[in-house]
């Protein structure tokens, strides 16, 4: 009996142990420490850390317009970015589920940007905005290309949006394609026989039946855009004058540029709470949709 128990314990340790240990060290410990540090004046360098209560949170809310601005930027960016990326992703999928000859190669092309990391993508686009656009502008005379791209708040915002869409639309397209392919063929055929035109089929059959995929894609895109860091860093570094700084970049700068680790952790905790609320809404919403479909 005892031997059986100890061999059970051993296999529990062998199978679950390694994952649990890494998880505890890398995620749980920093998370708990973060909760503590957010109530301190830790500066990252000196050993002295003293408790300051809720001062950090007070300061963030009352005296830190940059953090509020970063949040507002991130929210605006998320709303615009996820709508445009999903609309494009959906229509790419819609047309690429038709019997086109170039369908496979086009799918490859649309997906390709997604495998490149955000940092390198951002640098490539920085060149295109700065040099490429002005060359196109000089050749065509279109004022769109002659704007000061990435040089002011508006073009900075839309510049990051363009790259975000270019990067994510193909990924969303893949999910929409699999969802459209799952629509039973006989439903579509029945609608065609009944004389429904393409627009009617799109509106009354495809759209409602891909709703579960829409939910998945919307929230995937929310989580990417809300945590955006690499694109932001490589395209504008949050500039000019911090006008395009995302929350993630703001937290990073607070800790690693200004050496205010305590304040940075407090911001990180606020960020966590917001992301956790959005994600749990997502799970709840997705679950309820799954029952319907």
């Amino acid at each position: 009996m005892n031997r059986k128990k100890s061999s059970e314990l051993l296999s529990q340790l062998v199978f679950v142990g390694p994952s649990t240990v890494f998880f505890l060290i890398i995620i749980v410990t920093p998370f708990l420490l973060g909760l503590y540090y957010s109530f301190t004046n830790w500066n990252g360098i000196s050993g002295e850390v003293s408790w300051v209560g809720i001062d950090n949170f007070k300061q963030i809310i009352t005296k830190d317009p940059d953090f509020g601005r970063a949040f507002w930027f991130t929210i605006r960016f998320t709303v615009v970015g996820i709508i445009l990326a999903n609309v494009l992703g959906f229509f790419l999928a819609y047309f690429l589920t038709k019997p086109l000859k170039t369908r496979n190669i086009l799918r490859t092309i649309f997906f390709m940007p997604n495998v490149i990391g955000g940092l390198l993508l951002g640098f490539i686009w920085q060149f295109i905005f700065v040099k490429g656009f002005s060359a196109v502008g000089a050749a065509t005379g279109w004022s769109f290309f002659n704007l000061p791209w990435l040089g002011d708040e508006t073009t900075g915002f839309w510049g990051i949006i363009i790259v975000f869409i270019w990067q994510t639309a193909g990924y969303l397209m893949v999910i929409y394609i699999s969802s459209i392919n799952n629509i039973p063929k006989d439903i579509m055929e029945a609608a065609e026989i009944d004389g429904a035109n393409k627009l009617q089929i799109l509106k009354s059959i495809i759209m409602p039946l891909v709703m579960p995929a829409v939910t998945v894609c919307l929230f995937l895109a929310i989580s990417w855009s809300f945590k955006m860091f690499d694109l932001n860093l490589s395209l504008t570094k949050g500039g000019p004058f911090r006008s395009t700084e995302s929350v993630a970049l703001n937290i990073y700068n607070e800790a690693f540029q200004n050496d205010r680790y305590g304040l940075g952790t407090a911001k990180a905790i606020i960020f966590f709470v917001v992301v956790a609320v959005i994600t749990s809404l997502q799970v709840k919403f997705t679950k309820s949709k799954e029952v319907e479909s």
């Binding site: 860091f229 990180a268 749990s280």
Partner: peptide
């Protein structure tokens, strides 16, 4: 539950650990 935690909200204490 931990999948909800964004990297940026634990990166600062992580460096300490």
């Amino acid at each position: 539950a931990a999948m909800v935690i964004p990297f940026q909200s634990i990166m600062i204490p992580l460096v300490k650990v």
